[in-house]
């Protein structure tokens, strides 16, 4: 097993483990958030292994640095307690859903080896770096790149409208 592969296994295990602990942690929302951060960071490591450097950095910056912080922030701000969330109905349906999802994932995993080619394309110079991806963003993907600004504006306005304390 090469160093890269063992790194991958390490981070994959870390990601799955912390993801599970996020979902299964029933007591503590902040701990869930922290688990999520660990997942994110391990995924960033996997991205680096996949030569996606820019994505890896942005993963940490945006997910780790902004999104999860925001989660934690809200948890602290609202001081949410567990009994704020009453037990739900339709437990049977949910159990069924879970079983279905698990089954589907297993099925997908079984299908994967046949569906994917064995060979991998040769990577161009600078693949996944900020120059490569950035150039793509500003040329071929200029439209989505620019359009994202409007999306962010709407999120900005929306978040302010919804969370603003005073109504005037």
């Amino acid at each position: 097993m090469s160093a890269e592969l063992s790194l991958f296994y390490f981070f994959a295990a870390l990601a799955v483990g912390s993801a599970l602990s996020m979902v299964l942690n029933l007591r503590n929302t902040v701990a869930s958030a922290m688990s999520l951060v660990i997942t994110m960071v391990s995924l960033a490591a996997v991205y680096v292994l996949m030569e996606a450097h820019l994505v890896a950095v942005l993963q940490i910056m945006v997910y780790g640095g902004a999104i999860v912080v925001l989660f934690v922030f809200v948890v602290m701000l609202l001081n949410l307690r567990q009994d704020d969330f009453p037990p739900g109905r339709q437990r049977g349906a949910k159990a069924l859903g879970v079983v279905l999802v698990v089954f589907a994932v297993i099925k997908l995993l079984a299908l994967l080896p046949a569906a994917l080619p064995d060979t991998v394309a040769a990577l161009p110079e600078g693949f996944g770096g900020y120059r490569d991806v950035g150039t793509a963003l500003f040329t071929r993907f200029i439209l989505p790149f620019e359009a994202t600004s409007l999306l962010l504006l709407s999120a900005l306005v929306g978040a302010v409208v919804l969370a603003k304390r005073r109504l005037d």
Binding site: L150, L151, S154, G158
Partner: peptide
């Protein structure tokens, strides 16, 4: 990509509008 982006650009404002 644009389908997704458009979908989100449509949805996010509407989430907010629903809670307006």
């Amino acid at each position: 990509l644009l389908v997704f982006l458009g979908l989100e650009m449509m949805s996010i404002p509407i989430y907010v509008l629903a809670g307006f």
